[in-house]
Design a protein around this nucleic acid. Sequence first.
DNA 1: CGATTGCTTGATACCTCTCAACCCAGGTGG
DNA 2: CCACCTGGGTTGAGAGGTATCAAGCAATCG
Lengths: 238, 238
Amino acid sequence: MPMSNQLAPATAATFPVVHDAIAPRSWEPNEAASLAIDDVGLASTGSVLHFTQDQQVFGEGDQAEFLFKVASGVIRTCRFHGDGRRQIDDFHIAGDIFGLETSQHYQVSAEAVCDCMVIAYRRRGVEKRAPGNETLSQQLFLVALQSMNRAREHALLLGRRSAVEKVASFLIEWGQRAPASTTVTLAMTRQDIADYLGLTIETVSRTLSQLERDGLITLVTARRIEIKDVQALRALHG
Amino acid sequence: MPMSNQLAPATAATFPVVHDAIAPRSWEPNEAASLAIDDVGLASTGSVLHFTQDQQVFGEGDQAEFLFKVASGVIRTCRFHGDGRRQIDDFHIAGDIFGLETSQHYQVSAEAVCDCMVIAYRRRGVEKRAPGNETLSQQLFLVALQSMNRAREHALLLGRRSAVEKVASFLIEWGQRAPASTTVTLAMTRQDIADYLGLTIETVSRTLSQLERDGLITLVTARRIEIKDVQALRALHG
DNA sequence: CGATTGCTTGATACCTCTCAACCCAGGTGG
DNA sequence: CCACCTGGGTTGAGAGGTATCAAGCAATCG
């Protein structure tokens, strides 16, 4: 567990506080801030950690000692199947909380999609302070509800039949998260996208090419996609 | 909205209270009770409603005025797409809470899979009483987390590639919910199952037949399935 | 009984997976 | 500077699985 390496020298509450200054709600370092959930309840006790690309934050089955918030970068939560296949549960960007669990153990693994800063909060500490702290309780409740919503939307997305619908939905969704212009910049590889959508890497690639041929998007580079026809894309998503 | 019809004459807090006596945690009327979440915080203010098969409890987009708990029967939450396709988000059995939302509007519709009794709680009332009521707050928090878990598991299930895996997973999961013997009794139609798994009705039927030919299950009737080889089924479930 | 509804089964088309080759950009080292 | 290597991405051909269309069966109900 790479995490313990980093937490050992840096115990909770020793790191500088991270209030709203922490990060823009985007994985790109230069976006404007708009935190969905403010930091009043949590931020005063977190320790800041750094993870490099593909480094694991925690593994499925580990003791769920911490709660995390993304400060910058993108974290993916996922699960691995016996045959080596991977299923990505969600992508988390700055401001998102992950690692919230009912059980004592994490039900998914968490890994850095790119270089990341995350803030770790001791779960015990949070749980101890939650009763009586209305702000914190409400905040956690909201986080849980939002996680529920996201998981639900993901399930409904995966239920869609065709690859085009899935890929279009993904572009729309990811485009909304980083509220840039019409140009979407992907933080993740095709493999990540495929594992998120329940497709293969080749199908994702082919579908993107197809969307480009149809004039809905332009593949500026592999990771930069310009959306030419939002309407049509939304129609597919619809 | 059929609900308002029923709530109009029966305003909140007029109905008899429903404590733990309400229902066994199973959609079958004769199962043993084992509520995952106790009722202390909620039950004192709910009104009991009845819904017949396929009747709508609420629709996507409706004002989310109420919070519901299943007393008996099975409720499905789902969403409809433009082309008429339906995607089922979840099945809710006795003891389950549904209709919890971040937004002011329901994000999915809710319908009765079979004849159902549900308890409706005014959302405003709950929200008013939650601060300061530790039991109720924690309860709601737990419900949100459990909903998140279920949605996540559903997403991971839908990410699985093959129809066999999906159907096997569904059988295992549903079998666990009604903790009967090795015989699983389905409350829902093949269409419901198909819309939950992102498959067609024919594929579900064929897959079940295949599982029977392979000796993993026996189709006693269309709705009663005996599990002959749990191990093998779990292996498919992955 | 005929009609309806839910379910099963069959034949075929289509879409996605699989396997494979190839391309391209970036990094390394001679 | 260029050859080489590597990892990520694209593209092609064929196989396989699921959707689609269609027919038939069983149970239920007026």
